[in-house]
Each structure stands twice: as C-alpha cells, then as structure tokens.
Amino acid sequence: MHTLLVARRDLAAYLHGYAGWVIVAAVLFVTGLLFQTRGLGAGPQLSHEVLETFFENCGGLVMIAGILFTMRSLAEERQLGTDVLLQTSPATDAQVVVGKWLAAMGMMALTLALTLYMPALIFVNGKVSLAHIAVGYTGLLSLAAATTAIGIAASSLFRTQLPAGILGAVVLVTLLLGWLLSDVTDAPFKDVLAYAAFWDKHFTTFMEGRLHVRDLAYYASVTFAFLLAATKVLEGRRWQ
C-alpha cells in the first residue's frame, strides 16, 4: 500500500509539473526525428531493419530519459525537507524506493506508449510481426527499469539533482562501455565484464526480436541491485 501511495504521489508530481512533460516531449521529438532520418529516410531497407533502427534509437533515448526522470526523485525530497514525511511514516525504506521507481517507470511507460505510432506505421506499411514489436518494447521497458534504478540509487546519495544526474550518467556509461575492458583483461574478469555489458550483450537481442531469459534476468538483476543500494542508503541515513 505504501509503495503505491509513494508512486501515486510522485507520478502526480511528474504529471502536474512541467519538467516531466518537457522530458516526454523531448524524447518524442528526437525519436520522431531519428525515425524520419535514420529509419524512413535512410534509403531502401527491409521493414525489420527499420524497426531495429527504431528500437536502437529509442533505447538510447530511454537511458537518457531514465536518468533525467529519476535524478530529482530522492534528492529533491531531501533538498526540500519532505523526506521527513517519508522517513517518519510507517513505510519501510524499501517501499519508498520501490514507490519512487514505479513512478519513474510510469513516466517511462507513458513515453514509450506515445512512440507506438512509429512501429504501427511500419506494421501497416511494411512486413513485421507483432511479436517483434512486443519483444522490442519488452527490451525497452527492461532497459528503462535498470536505468531508472541506477538513477534512483544516484539520487539517494545527494541533496541536489545535478550531481545525482551526473553520477547516474557516469554509472550508466561505465556499464555501457565496461565491456571494452573485457578485451584487455583475463578470465574470470573478462567474462564478467563481457556479461555486464549494458547494451551490446543484452539489448541488441531485443532489438532483433529475440527474447532470451538471460537478458531479462540481467536487467532484472541490475534493477534489483541498484534499488537495494538506494534502500541501504536510506536505511544508513538513520545511523549517520
């Protein structure tokens, strides 16, 4: 119950403020622009290639939006002193963190829902399967889940949005590019770094319409790990 109350409050704050809508509008604008230039306007391509390009573009923007949506989440509560309302309520720190994450996921889901017209255009005018579209969006939501969890963990560490956003972005970039180190390291780190690749090893399969449990498990584990970290930060604050 507390989780849903926190999520509802945060979602309302996103929807009643302008910042959330600015992020949604920016994502839709850039996605549309890239769809027109890299998808429809990039010369003759097969339908599934246009769809893959769309998911690739969308994936990048999902990561940026995830950080932007969440960098204010816990940091702003602390800055405004409203974290007291959460900390003195009978909600556990885990419920607060998950509630915040659900609200951010709600905004991500809304944003992604508003992009559906583009795959729909490909589906109507080309030849792609609904399964490919469904798997691609599953991948985008998985990516969003992990990114927002990273953003919330970063937000739990700071009093203001900007350093939270920067830290979230740094963690994300490290996860994105960490696999490059796998070429210059030995086992077992080589395998770990290769497996941890946030995009190349796990998202490209979704883009291509292939659903693997290992990829879902990877994003679920990243999400869990960072939400747990945020919870521990909140718990630790009572002992500081």
């Binding site: 409050r9 704050a13 009643h16 403020g17 405004l80 002193g81 409203t82 974290d83 007291v84 309302l85 003195t88 309520s89 009978p90």
Partner: peptide, 16 residues
C-alpha cells in the same frame, strides 16, 4: 511511527 506525529522547524510540505 504510527503513534508519533512530527513537525520540524520548517514544515515538510508538498507545495504543489
């Protein structure tokens, strides 16, 4: 926590 109500010096309010 259910049995306690707390008002800090600066009231914690969602101003929106």
């Amino acid at each position: 926590r259910r049995r306690i109500g707390y008002l800090p010096e600066d009231p914690p309010l969602y101003v929106d």
